[in-house]
C-alpha cells in the first residue's frame, strides 16, 4: 500500500506489558485500531484502563511489547532511535496534563523549543512560526512572560502553541483539561477543535465524557481492552450544523 493511502495510525493486536524483574504486568491487550488523517479521536476510560499508555505508544514515547504498530504503513518496532526522534520532532506533538513547560523560560522560548530539534525548519523561520503559534492560542500579549507567571489555562495554551509550532500531523493531548477550571478547559478544547478543523489529527486522552464529546470519535478502554469504538459523537460544530439542518 502506498504510504499516502495508508491510515495514519494502524495497530494490529497491539500489546503492552511492564516488566518488574520477573513479574509481568500486562496493561494493553489486543488493541486493533485505525486512525485516519484529520480525525479527532478521544480515547476515554477510567484511571488505570491503559489509555495514557496507548497514547504514549502511538506517540512514540514508549514501546509496545507485542503485536504491530504501523505509522503510515511503517512498522514502529523496526524504527531506530534516530528515526523515532525524527518522528517526534516532525510528525507528532504532545499536550500534557501537567503542561511540562520549561519553568525559567518565557512563553516564546517554550514554544520555540521543538523548533530547536526540528531537522528541516530553517532558523530564519523560527520567529515567525513561534509568533503565529502564540497568536493562534491568543497569548501574544503574554509572550515574554515566564511560564511560571501564567495561569493554568495560559500554561496549557502555551503547551498547545508548542505542540502546533512544528505543524505536526498528529497532536496528542493527555488529559489537557485535567488541571484546569471549567472556563479554561473549554478554551483549551476549543483550541484543539480549531486545530482539528485546520487539518491536524487530534488524539485526546481523557476520563471525562464531557471532554471526550468534543471529539468525532470516541474509543473507550477498560482494563487494557477496547470496549467501544464509536463515531456517533460529533463535534459541537457538527452537532450545531445537524440541528440547523433539522
Amino acid at each position: 500500500m502506498p504510504e499516502n493511502d495508508a491510515p495514519l495510525i494502524e495497530t494490529k493486536n497491539l500489546q503492552k506489558s511492564y516488566f518488574n524483574e520477573e513479574l509481568e504486568t500486562p496493561v494493553l491487550f489486543n488493541i486493533d485500531l485505525t486512525i485516519k488523517k484529520n480525525e479527532f479521536v478521544a480515547i476515554m476510560g477510567p484511571s488505570g484502563s491503559g489509555k495514557s499508555t496507548l497514547m504514549h505508544i502511538l506517540g512514540f514515547l514508549d514501546h509496545h511489547t507485542g503485536g504491530e504498530y504501523l505509522f503510515q504503513g511503517q512498522l514502529a518496532h523496526e524504527m531506530d532511535e534516530d528515526t523515532l526522534s525524527r518522528i517526534r520532532a516532525t510528525r507528532v506533538s504532545f499536550v500534557f496534563q501537567a503542561f511540562n513547560l520549561l519553568p525559567r523560560a518565557s512563553v516564546e522560548q517554550n514554544v520555540m523549543l521543538p523548533l530547536i530539534y526540528h531537522p528541516t525548519i530553517p532558523e530564519s523561520e523560527r520567529a515567525e512560526r513561534v509568533a503565529k503559534a502564540i497568536e493562534t492560542v491568543g497569548l501574544t500579549h503574554r509572550k515574554n512572560n515566564l511560564s511560571n507567571q501564567l495561569s493554568g489555562g495560559e500554561k496549557q495554551r502555551t503547551a498547545i502553541a508548542r505542540a502546533l509550532v512544528t505543524e505536526p500531523d498528529i497532536i496528542f493531548a493527555d488529559e489537557p483539561t485535567g488541571n484546569l477550571d471549567s472556563v479554561s478547559g473549554i478554551q483549551v478544547m476549543s483550541a484543539l477543535q480549531e486545530l482539528n478543523e485546520a487539518g491536524h489529527t487530534i488524539i485526546l486522552v481523557t476520563h471525562e465524557k464531557s471532554t471526550a464529546e468534543h471529539a468525532e470519535r470516541i474509543i473507550e478502554l477498560f482494563d487494557g481492552r477496547i470496549t467501544k469504538d464509536t463515531t456517533e459523537f460529533k463535534t459541537r460544530k457538527a452537532k450545531e450544523e445537524d440541528s440547523l439542518q433539522k
Binding site: G59, L61, S85, T90, N100, L102
Partner: peptide
C-alpha cells in the same frame, strides 16, 4: 529529568 524527557518528547536525539 522531566526537562530531558520533554526535550526528547519534542524530538531531541540522544546525541543532542
Amino acid at each position: 529529568t522531566r526537562e530531558i524527557g520533554l526535550r526528547k518528547a519534542v524530538g531531541a536525539k540522544r546525541k543532542d
